[in-house]
Amino acid sequence: MSDQPKIELRNVSKAFGSNHVLRDVSFSVTPGESMTVIGGSGSGKSVMLKCILGLMDVDGGQIFVDGADVCAMKQADRDDVRTKFGMLFQGGALFDSLPVWRNVTFALTSGRYRNSGEMRKVALDNLERVGLGEEVLELRPSELSGGMQKRVALARAIAPRPEIIFFDEPTTGLDPIRTDVINRLILELVRDLGITALTITHDMGSVEKISDRVAMLYDGRIIWSGPVGDLRRSGDVHVDQFVMGHADGPIA
């Protein structure tokens, strides 16, 4: 495994007006690692992912992908770097106007109608990986249940075989069995395909199942990070309260 981190954040800060969402956030993810960031709702986890993807500009600090400072890049170069990423959005973010197969193959066709027969096969291959079949190929996202939408979104994220995948609350809204299917898939992607994964989630069961390392974001800062095995003996009262799910504690 290379010593160079796949992703590295150095003192990244981001504010919306007087609301400082990220304050000097620093951490790194090594190639092939599954890192999970936990933290309360509104703690800035999704903003952090969007900053790494270049969907939002940072106010300060640096973000490195494969050693290259993406914040200092021109837009065209940043677009090239973005091809390394796949992302599963919290709500799925499927395109309402397109059938499932075109959603799944969108990155491969850049949204154009081409090689329909071949693209249907590619879509089906990826859908089967997330436990869906041919019957959903022609359906619209509005005709799917919430859980199925999530799985289609996951199939769409992995279809272009990215080097890095971000999972934004991948198991929210899924039943325990489907949650396990998604967790296993994330593990499979990381271990079998060597994909680097960065997940943000509240689901502690998923955290302990899919993560190599965990970091906790609180008050805009990474207050703890370490191997997942150390999560329950972190010695940090904020982490303990969050992991145990206690209403009483320093986190309001």
Binding site: L55, D79, G86, F89, L94, F95, D96, F106, P160
Partner: peptide, 17 residues
């Protein structure tokens, strides 16, 4: 609607401007 449901962000991550 595409903006508030993150479909625009998804489009960018799917290599489409």
């Amino acid at each position: 609607t595409m903006r508030v449901t993150e479909q625009i962000d998804a489009m960018v991550t799917l290599r489409t401007d």
